[in-house]
Nucleic acid binder design. Structure first.
Lengths: 259, 259
DNA sequence: CGCAGAGTTGAACGGTGTCAAGTAACGTGG
DNA sequence: CCACGTTACTTGACACCGTTCAACTCTGCG
């Protein structure tokens, strides 16, 4: 059963993959894409709660999430776990391991998750031979850097409801970017994980969601989220709900332009 | 004042620069390093409070901070400014603009700051001709990604003293990595900026510093910081000071290893 | 059907934000 | 170089949001 199932979800080449338009090959010439496709191990399955990779471990591959989701986890010296981020379908795991060649964090599947793998040895080969892959890889890491930086705004300075609303919208936008339903989706993580990521407790996340639900901004059942009113959510995400807007004036005296 | 001194001795080539061992050329062959050196505009000066680049602006160059410091700023829809990060000497500005070719954030000098610039047009040229530069660039972006991700831990979940202690240690570590004094340094930013970065108010930062100072963990005068007791600071940074350690048990049932 | 883990909801405490007043550092112009 | 004004920082008091602890319900799975 799982074999035929896997076959259905695992096309033989990247060209036939549902994510082809947003994955690596999208920006490659067809020759490069074929070469790329030949080096990729497609559709590796990672069960719920299993590690895709472990902190400190030698990095073997880049992984592209095809379906499912994962969490990036940092274990503090006290043994507590802090969630550093999530990987959603269409996103690439391991871009942060290209410097040290070691994975900096544990990456754990939140549900049954399917990934394609590009072995790093093959990546080297591709980088030398296919300039498109080089450009694309640099573009990807750079974009990842930008997104993480942009995301830090969600996690500090705002109150709980704003952070939760922003988080939901962010997940929606990320799914949207990869052509997946962005108004009605299933969150793979427990609230506990989302809370850790947002710097809150799961009780607070629960309460924030209750508030958003009561206002008709969204619906939540189990872990399925339906965005009912994006504008209202965005409003919450900016902290402009109920109480007045931010009064933290820029105090910015930055000078118009250098030279 | 030491700044003007240094300015007079702005080296004519990268080989003679004090940061040579930690900057780009460190990992290049001498031929590549010479080529690199020839394409770099050295020692551009950015006055305090001036923009190195602006959000949305077409990216022209990668910048390497030689001395001084800058803040990365995001302007919220309400007009308030949120500090997303800082650049310290030896670090590279603009790695997050390689995807969209536009700078995602304002970058503002916190003090008189000196940067070298590598025009992106020249970078393309280098990437094609010098494989060492390609490797090094990928390594650098990847490392930046890792560091930002690692840094998110500092900003969520811990109390104010822990965050401030962790921040100070992080700045010290970053300076150390580039061969600069790591136990006694000057923070270029106002507490207001550090507070924004840490998701706190500047009053709370001030109080946290007062606490750390009272315990003899560090000394602060104006913006000069002296680390007196790193162990104690690290202790604070882990949130193990005074009250008991984290009781947030992993609840981690992640399964030993996939397959 | 029943257990275990996840999520919800309530009450009380505490840390941080907020407001306010006072002090120290910095830059500017005399 | 000094007086001044502005800005940054310090410190205190209080309110509020979020954490903590606890009881309960829901969901999923054997």
């Amino acid at each position: 059963l799982s074999e035929t199932h896997r076959a259905n979800h695992a096309p033989a080449t990247c060209e036939h993959c549902g994510l082809a338009r947003v994955c690596f090959p999208a920006a490659l010439s067809s020759a490069e894409a074929r070469k790329f496709s030949g080096l990729v191990q497609r559709g590796k399955l990672v069960g719920a709660w299993r590690y895709l990779c472990r902190a400190g471990e030698q990095a073997q591959s880049l992984y592209i999430v095809r379906s499912g989701s994962l969490k990036i986890v940092d274990i503090t010296s006290g043994g507590a776990e802090a969630v550093v981020g999530f990987y959603l379908p269409g996103e690439v795991v391991g871009l942060d391991a290209l410097a040290g060649e070691r994975h900096p964090h544990d990456v754990i599947a939140l549900e049954q998750t399917r990934c394609c793998a590009l072995p790093l040895s093959h990546l080297e080969e591709l980088l030398a031979q296919a300039p498109g892959v080089r450009r694309e890889l640099i573009r990807m890491i750079s974009r990842a850097l930008d997104e993480i930086q942009r995301r830090t705004t969600l996690r500090a300075g705002q109150d709980a409801q704003a952070r939760v609303a922003a988080f939901i919208l962010d997940v929606g936008a990320r799914l949207d970017r990869h052509g997946l339903a962005s108004s009605c989706f299933r969150l793979g993580m427990r609230w506990r994980d989302a809370a850790s990521y947002l710097g809150l407790t799961f009780e607070t996340v629960s309460r924030a969601l209750a508030g958003l639900r009561k206002d008709g901004a969204l619906e939540v059942r189990a872990r399925n989220v339906v965005l009912k009113d994006r504008a209202r959510l965005a409003h919450y995400a900016r902290g402009e709900a109920g109480h007045a807007a931010a009064r933290d004036q820029p105090s910015l005296r930055a000078i118009a332009t250098a030279e």
